[in-house]
């Protein structure tokens, strides 16, 4: 049995199995609960500095990770916790990095915006808006040089989409047919500046057309639509046809960072999105509506996720701070 979902842009129907839907449900819920817990630890002073939560945007990374194979790479901005969890990095290691502890992915030396995993091909975690875009194309350059069919997912926001280096990268990525998917996570706001206040462009993906890069706008709140678009993009890249742009129309429920009072939008706007477009509720409705799962099954998943997240918080509190000798290690490889 399978649920049916219609992606608004393509109008195509996709048949999705129970297992697949449950996987998306679990992965999106993990990100949401993890981020809620991170917010809580921040409030308790256990996480310092900048902390940018991914709540609301979960469908983007979960849908795209469903299109990947071993060897594919990903790189993103500072709003990166969700990307790490979605590519299989451990919640414990991510949370312990947020608290700046020895058990973190960077042994406490990177923080929220700077985590990496060679093993999972996750290349950060970048704090300079837009800088990850040419880096992603460079990862793809290396794969093309080596002659494999790996693809690099390069995520950036609507704010970064106005950086000059994005267009320098578009030009070279298309010129050299690099296997890179540019994923614009358009959540409507670059910090406090709405897209309408930063550009007259009506579509951000459309800017790629000037360089010959195809792309499309996708309902980034619908994980199935994201997956369908992702597969199309991946097929394009793996076939050696060069880069592809996916503009994911999404929404972040929380502020830009923990210190954001969010005066630039109304509470009603946020509530409306939560009520009408929530990505997790959407999958939950699909599961329950088609009779693929019952409340008890989903509750059991909720509990499992909660346990994983609570355990990560405990781990992150108990892991010791890095030894003072770590101050002078890792400066050079």
């Amino acid at each position: 049995m399978a649920a049916k979902s219609t992606t608004p842009e393509t109008g195509k129907k996709s048949n999705v199995s129970k297992d697949e839907l449950l996987k998306y449900y679990r992965e999106m819920l993990l990100i949401r609960r993890f981020e809620e817990k991170a917010g809580q630890l921040y409030g308790m002073g256990l996480i310092g500095g900048f902390c940018h939560l991914y709540i609301g945007q979960e469908a983007v990374v979960v849908g795209l990770e469903a299109c990947t194979k071993e060897g594919d790479k990903r790189v993103t901005s500072y709003r990166d916790h969700g990307h790490m969890l979605a590519c299989g990095m451990e919640a414990n290691g991510v949370m312990a990095e947020l608290t700046g502890r020895e058990g973190g992915y960077s042994r406490g030396k990177g923080g929220s915006m700077h985590m990496f995993s060679r093993e999972k091909h996750f290349y950060g975690g970048h704090g300079i808006v837009g800088a990850q875009v040419p880096i992603g194309a460079g990862l793809a350059f290396a794969d093309k040089y080596k002659g494999n069919d790996n693809v690099t997912f390069t995520y950036f926001g609507d704010g970064a989409a106005n950086q000059g280096q994005v267009y320098e990268t578009y030009n070279m990525a298309e010129l050299w047919d690099l296997p890179v998917i540019f994923v614009i996570e358009n959540n409507g706001y670059a910090m406090g500046t709405s897209v309408k206040r930063s550009t007259k462009s009506t579509s951000l993906y459309g800017r790629g057309l000037a360089y010959g890069i195809p792309g499309e706008q996708v309902d980034g709140m619908d994980v199935l639509a994201v997956k369908a678009a992702g597969e199309k993009a991946v097929a394009h890249c793996r076939a050696g046809k060069g880069p592809y742009i996916l503009e994911m129309m999404t929404y972040r429920y929380r502020g830009h960072s923990m210190s954001d009072p969010a005066k630039y939008r109304t509470r009603e706007e946020v509530e409306k999105m939560k009520a009408e477009k929530d990505a997790i509720e959407h999958v939950r409705d699909l599961l329950l509506g088609a009779g693929l799962a019952n409340e008890d099954e989903l509750k059991a998943i909720d509990k499992q996720i909660k346990d994983v997240v609570n355990a990560s918080a405990e781990f992150a509190k108990e892991s010791p701070e890095p030894s003072v000798s770590e101050l002078y290690t890792d400066i050079y490889a």
Partner: peptide
Amino acid sequence: GFTGIAVGAAWG
């Protein structure tokens, strides 16, 4: 742009 690409290629 090409410096960022070269850095990514080094990581790759």
